[in-house]
Simulated scan of single mutants.
Amino acid sequence: MAAVVGIRAWPRPIVLVCETLLVAVCYYAAGRLGLSQQLVADGAVVTPIWPPTGVAVACLLLFGLRCVPGIAVGALLVVASLTAPRLSAAGIVLGNTLAPVCACLMLRAVGFRVSLSRLRDGLMLVFLGAMTAMLISSGVGIGTLALTDKLVADDFWLVWLAWWVGDAMGVVIVTPLLLVLHRARWPPPSGRWGEAAGLALVVCVLVPLVTYSSVSVLFLVYPLLIWAALRFQLAGGMPCALFASVMATVAAREEAGSFARLTDIETMMKLQAFNGTLGLTALLLSSVISEQINTRRSVEQACQELVEALQHLNAGGPGSTGSSGGGVR
């Protein structure tokens, strides 16, 4: 307790600097992870999932706009690790900073809940936070590269699509997972530990087999994803989707399994379609189940309160009712 009081007693500028550095480090680490799984499609380097966008949107939703400097610094560090500081780098940093900010502002404006306890919240995160807001980062980034002659005109739409989908998938898959981790408490509830362990074992064994199988059986991942989402909602669905997406990306980079004998364009399109359907299924199904559970609990609570109210009214007995009637007459 004394340590917490001591931290809160720090001068506000020092607290803001520490928060900025922490957000920047998290953004940079997520960027390096994303770059480690990059693909080459028709000569252009793309990332099927760009985790920093998910990290940025989650930080803004949880801690507010004071995270903006940290996001900008983290984006600058990621770009600086790839190329020398130039005008194109400044444009990419600007786009990667503005897109999460716009996502946060739009989600707040429509009443988004970080608990993702409603289907509406999942839909808003997908259509506003991911698909709409990430048009900014992809548009500004690709536009800057085109204006500075860093991009071949024939590759414009291919690179733009890959950039946009990668950023959007970062929001769809990474942001919900971070929001769940922020709400998690230790120790976790002890119920259904056996089922959770069994699910984790099956996922860790079956998903690599499916992604590396010479027969195209990627669809076998979806029953596992549905199981995880039905039983554990976001806490089960999103880690399962992320693991399957990472394994599929690794298989695509190695041109193994279902991604063997495909062209670069076919590999990118198949992988991004798989990742997109995984993320959407996990997020929306988990939101639906959470909403149904919350509705049932609300109904049960209302019924319990009604029963208690009736018991309280009947506690007076017939004599109390008769006395009250005599007073009225």
Rank of each mutant, 00 (worst) to 15 (best):
A3G: 12
V5Q: 15
R8E: 09
W10E: 15
I14F: 13
V17P: 04
V17A: 08
C18P: 10
E19Q: 13
T20F: 14
C26R: 03
C26K: 03
G31C: 03
G31F: 02
L33R: 08
L35N: 03
V40Q: 04
A41C: 13
G43E: 02
V46R: 08
P48E: 00
W50Y: 02
P51G: 00
T53R: 01
G54L: 00
V55E: 05
V55L: 07
V55T: 08
L60E: 03
L60P: 04
F63S: 14
G64R: 02
R66K: 14
I71P: 01
G74K: 01
L77D: 10
V78W: 13
V78T: 13
V79G: 00
S81R: 09
A84Q: 09
R86N: 09
G91F: 10
V93W: 05
N96L: 07
T97V: 12
P100F: 00
V101D: 05
C102T: 02
C104W: 10
C104K: 14
G111F: 08
G111I: 09
F112N: 01
R113S: 15
R113L: 15
V114A: 15
V114G: 15
R120L: 03
R120V: 00
A130C: 01
M131I: 06
M131L: 05
S137Y: 07
S137A: 15
G139L: 08
G139M: 07
G141Q: 12
I142N: 12
T144G: 10
A146E: 09
L147E: 11
T148H: 07
D149K: 09
D149R: 09
D149I: 10
A153W: 01
D155R: 07
F156S: 08
V159T: 03
W160S: 03
A162C: 09
A162G: 09
W163Y: 07
V165A: 04
V171G: 04
V172I: 10
V174T: 08
V174H: 06
R185G: 13
P188M: 12
E195R: 12
A197P: 00
G198D: 00
L199G: 01
V202Q: 00
V202D: 01
V203P: 06
L209D: 00
T211C: 03
L220P: 02
V221Q: 09
W227C: 08
W227Q: 08
W227D: 07
F232W: 07
P239Q: 03
L242D: 13
F243T: 13
A248Q: 06
V250M: 04
A252G: 06
A252E: 05
R253P: 07
E254L: 12
S258C: 07
S258G: 05
A260L: 06
R261T: 11
R261K: 15
R261I: 11
I265N: 15
T267P: 06
L271M: 02
F274Y: 02
G276F: 00
L278E: 00
G279N: 02
T281V: 04
V288K: 04
S290W: 06
S290R: 09
E291P: 08
Q292F: 15
Q292P: 10
Q292E: 12
N294R: 11
V299N: 11
E300Y: 12
Q301G: 10
Q301K: 10
L306T: 01
E308Y: 09
L310T: 04
L310I: 07
N314S: 14
G316T: 12
P318V: 14
P318S: 14
P318L: 11
T321M: 14
T321R: 14
T321C: 13
S323N: 04
S324K: 13
G325F: 08
G327R: 13
V328G: 11
R329D: 05
